[in-house]
Design a protein around this nucleic acid. Structure first.
Lengths: 233, 233
DNA sequence: AAGTGGTCTAGACCACGTC
DNA sequence: ACGTGGTCTAGACCACTTC
């Protein structure tokens, strides 16, 4: 791993251990250069990483300070690891409602940045968190990138399968957030009433080589869904 | 302005002019070093800025590529400029429902990171976009930082006032996103039905010196509100 | 093998805060 | 005036892609 990433992880560890708690301020760059025995730019790369993660912020002429945030029970909206990763302490059950291999029509082809007629997996899942009906997911995967998708995979974690077995590396994603009134079918699956709110997040996910491989629409149960986002300098 | 920021803006301009459209790829770093007559690190700072903005992405050993995104009519959730900025082509009307100067009780003090008894402005606004009842805003400002807040300011743009008149510089913000069922009062103001969905975004906003100065809860009309967020490497 | 981005170093000067 | 972060330069080597 790169030096600056090691430095960044180590600083996070030290923050978690409350090593700087009394002042809420990190050591100066020069002190960290000494401590880690690396160049100034390496320290600055590490600090820049932590700044964009919302862990710290800087005041020119003054120093780097630790941010205090309360994100209990919140899902980071900019995360690309999937819910299984976001809730390590809970048990997630996935009820696979259907898996189909579709031929893309014009609308789907546009959505998936692919050709008309390309094979696309369509997977419908109900995602249950500790007996709570948490979310309803409608997800599409390009078969060129995901050659096979079966019930046994979708019942566990699709994202773990893609990363660990297919060795896919995620690059970036676009997300659209809105709210809807649930129809009868959606409401029944989420054990809510027709017309109740649903928090909708539509994703378009790309690999690190820039190829789009997945779009999904997830309707979250408004009683449990709580997301957080950050705006940073 | 810093060189790398100028380079970044210029690259954005060139992308908008479709200068690289045929290949969707930027010139190599060496070519840009030549073109802009700056060092490699300066070019790389500019490219890093654009990458974190979601404008481009990089493939090691290959090059920098332009991202295509469709964010029509969407509000960037990580924006800190306020709605007036996000909708430059529309007319925003703000109906000021109330402005009060409160003494912080324990709950409010905790929310505002201030002392019990501190003076806090509380402002309730209905925000209307081209005759559409767009959002209902409940916003708190610490009087230590915002000494005065009046109806004449809140009817225009509070954020413009803070930036232009008080010369405040925004640093970063935390946001929490959820969905609720509207109660009778909220629904009437937004011209919706009781029990209809509301998309809620709760903000905690900090100045660039790390001081928290504003929290707000905004209930968006689900018929119009459409936000976007990005996850980037 | 050549091209291109990713990391790292050493050193310089500037801008802002603090005292 | 001094300390601290922000920007910039020149040069080196590594990792990955492309041919």
């Amino acid at each position: 791993m790169a030096k600056y990433k090691n430095v960044a992880s180590d600083i996070i560890e030290r923050i978690k251990k409350h090593e700087f708690k009394d002042i809420g301020k990190l050591p100066t760059e020069d002190e960290m250069i000494e401590y880690y025995n690396v160049s100034r730019n390496t320290i600055r790369s590490a600090l820049k990483t932590l700044t964009s993660q919302g862990v710290i912020y800087s005041r020119q002429g003054s120093g780097f300070y630790i941010r205090q945030r309360s994100n209990d029970n919140c899902i980071p909206i900019t995360g690309t690891n999937g819910l299984t990763y976001d809730f390590p302490h809970n048990t997630f059950t996935n009820v696979v409602l259907s898996i189909e291999l579709l031929k893309a029509d014009e609308i789907l082809a546009k959505k998936m940045f692919c050709e008309v007629g390309d094979s696309i997996y369509f997977c419908k899942r109900l995602r249950i968190l500790d007996d709570k009906k948490f979310a309803l997911e409608f997800s599409y995967y390009n078969q060129k990138i995901v050659p096979y998708l079966g019930k046994e995979i979708a019942e566990k974690s699709i994202y773990n399968y893609l990363q660990d077995n297919l060795k896919l590396k995620f690059g970036f994603a676009d997300k659209h957030i809105s709210a809807i009134k649930l129809n009868k079918e959606q409401a029944e699956l989420l054990e809510l009433e027709t017309g109740d709110p649903g928090l909708v997040i539509a994703d378009t996910v790309y690999l690190d080589n820039g190829m789009m491989f997945n779009t999904s629409q997830v309707i979250y149960n408004y009683k449990y869904a709580n997301f957080y986002a950050m705006a940073v300098r």
